[in-house]
Design a protein around this nucleic acid. Structure first.
Lengths: 358, 358
DNA sequence: GAAATCTCTGCAATCGATTGCATGAGTTTC
DNA sequence: GAAACTCATGCAATCGATTGCAGAGATTTC
């Protein structure tokens, strides 16, 4: 009665088309190698039986999974999820599946990666998390079993991997210069998480811009932070305790900028009337918070698309994986309402008056 | 020189431990079936060779992929990405990988799903998108090859699938009642996208609450929308054109609520002084926008965890998949600053004065 | 002490697709 | 008209792990 029909295999197709399985296989993967007549019979047979190649069998034989692994520090973070969107599209367009591994860094990250590769589940890795164990990673990409890997948005210093990222240092410089051009002289920075490469890059960009303008950087104006709203709120609390406060803040990312603004407001300070704030990333919500956030836009969709494309190129051998390549995409300054001239400077500046945003 | 060592197979382990591959396989999957002595020898051999079972081979033989497919309408949306986070953790904890398929609905969605299943890449599906082609879905879950499927957050009417979701209708009622309790009598609604089940459920919850309180619902106060910020901005434009405006709005989700507030502000109206707004979802940013958003919190992490757990139960046969089961999680009202008493009612109400939020 | 039972292990088939090699028919070349 | 070549196809090995069946030896039962 309830006899479950099995899913059709290549055998069924072969039987139906009265050819061997070899011919069916060839008809599907390199059609020019079979005659038109049999090709037609096979197409018909595929249609009738509803055949779909078994990916496990194919993987086993060809040692290829047609799947990439995306290792993220936090999928819940909209910064990553938009990139993941682009990655997924690019991969799907090229016939690859996308496996996600979240909260990747930490104790067993190297082991988990090793397992994914050695168990033949994935052909390549997009690594969005620079805090992964470098030694374990090298062991993996190194001689015994080299595998395709691209580091995205982050960078692992002195490691010979392809990378795709944005010009963090330059963008941070640009953001800081924007504040300086508005007339700010007393500028602080809400840092990213400690030990993160991006934190360092953005901080040094900030410092370079300050130095270039001949401005002092007070150590107490470098506020500890992280890439989260809550960290911005806490930074605002530190900020409020300062006897002498800056008139502008460059925050290491949008979330901490928004948290900072929100925290400041709880203490009665307004943005941008009291303090101007610049963020980094241009998340979707940056345009919709109040005040709309001035920020450096990272081309996130492009990052995802290019990274996925490059990884698949490496997997398919179309790109040399021995010579590490660094792709740097440029960020764009988006001026919105969270930055204005400093409160003291309602009168025109000595220089020609800067453009007042908003 | 550069001889690439192959990745170790079960054969290598067997040779090293001087047993058959069968014994190695058993030692790893059901250790109680081998003697302690050989078990130790095999563990040692596994350690030395660095063996990891080849997942393709295992899948082929066992017809199981230890992978679930998560089909989402939009990963970039933080609502989904937080759920995905929970799904990924639960799946990882139970030894499953997570494949994501984004922008799932539309033309070939049924075909793509069919391929994922028939090609043996995945064992089950978490479907977050109700707008998928029902007929194709039924064909798939139906007799020829039934497969494990759970619909999350959405619902496909009259379809015999397990579902995990929140109590949308009741939550919408609760949100609306909150506005009524604050003293609002003229209340509008920013709808979700047309044709969406959630849109209908939340709208009817809204209508029930209004009816229960004996309040009129004017058709022109039911503003067209979608689950996006931009749609909220547009709804605000419609709102501004009304000759006679409500004093409060229940928006179908947080994003449209935030967009609405932002759009209203561009026209000089303030929230909550002029108009109170309630959202739905409690996204991370709801607490950090200005004003902080009053909203119905959906237990997103729980949704993801429970859905993934239930799906794996079905896959592993620990849960009957023939009797569809509906799990409904309850939402929680989070009162923040975006709701207050209506502008006309600065004087006490006839009823005992309602709690003024903020 | 023979029979029954239990424990541990190995043999070999199996999952489904791919692919190197062989074959036979047809075509071209000199 | 024989040799050389091309083309379409089939045979059978292969990828690596799992598992039904069977056998050897140890242990228990009566």
């Amino acid at each position: 009665m309830n006899l479950v029909k099995k899913t059709p295999t290549i055998q069924d197709v072969a039987r139906f088309a009265r050819v061997s399985t070899a011919t069916v296989s060839r008809a599907l993967s390199s059609p020019e190698r079979v005659s038109e007549a049999t090709r037609d019979r096979i197409s018909e047979a595929v249609r009738v039986t509803g055949y779909t190649p078994n990916q496990s069998a194919r993987s086993l034989r060809q040692k290829t999974a047609r799947t990439i692994l995306v290792a993220l520090p936090d999928i819940g973070n909209p910064f990553f999820s938009v990139i993941l969107d682009a990655v997924e599209r690019e991969a799907a367009a090229r016939g690859y599946g996308v496996l996600v591994a979240n909260r990747f860094a930490g104790g067993d990250s190297g082991v988990r990666m090793r397992d994914y590769f050695m168990s033949n589940r994935v052909d390549g890795l997009l690594l969005f998390d620079g805090s992964v164990d470098l030694e374990q990673l090298m062991m993996l990409t190194g001689e015994p079993t080299p595998f395709p890997l691209i580091v995205v948005c982050e960078e692992i210093p002195n490691a010979p991997f392809h990378t795709v990222k944005t010009d963090n240092g330059y963008a941070a410089e640009r953001a800081t210069r924007h504040l300086i051009e508005l007339g700010h002289r007393r500028i602080g920075h809400v840092r990213g998480p400690q030990g993160n490469v991006l934190t360092v890059e953005r901080e040094s960009g900030f410092l370079r811009a300050m130095q270039a303008a001949g401005l002092d950087v007070r150590p107490e104006w470098m506020l500890p932070g992280a890439f989260e709203m809550e960290a911005g709120v806490i930074a605002a609390q530190h900020f409020m305790r300062l006897a002498d406060r800056p008139t502008a803040i460059f925050a290491a990312n949008d979330e901490s900028a928004i948290g900072f603004i929100s925290g400041m407001r709880q203490h009665g300070l307004d943005c941008p009337d009291d303090v101007s704030v610049v963020g980094f990333d241009d998340l979707a919500l940056a345009a919709h918070v109040w005040p709309p956030l001035t920020t450096m836009r990272q081309p996130r969709a492009a990052l995802g698309r290019i990274a996925a494309g490059a990884l698949i190129d490496v997997i398919e051998g179309e790109r040399n994986s021995r010579v590490p390549m660094h792709m740097v995409l440029s960020s764009e300054m988006i001026v919105r309402g969270s930055t204005a001239r400093p409160p003291a400077l309602t009168a025109p500046l000595a220089e020609p008056p800067a453009l007042v945003a908003r």
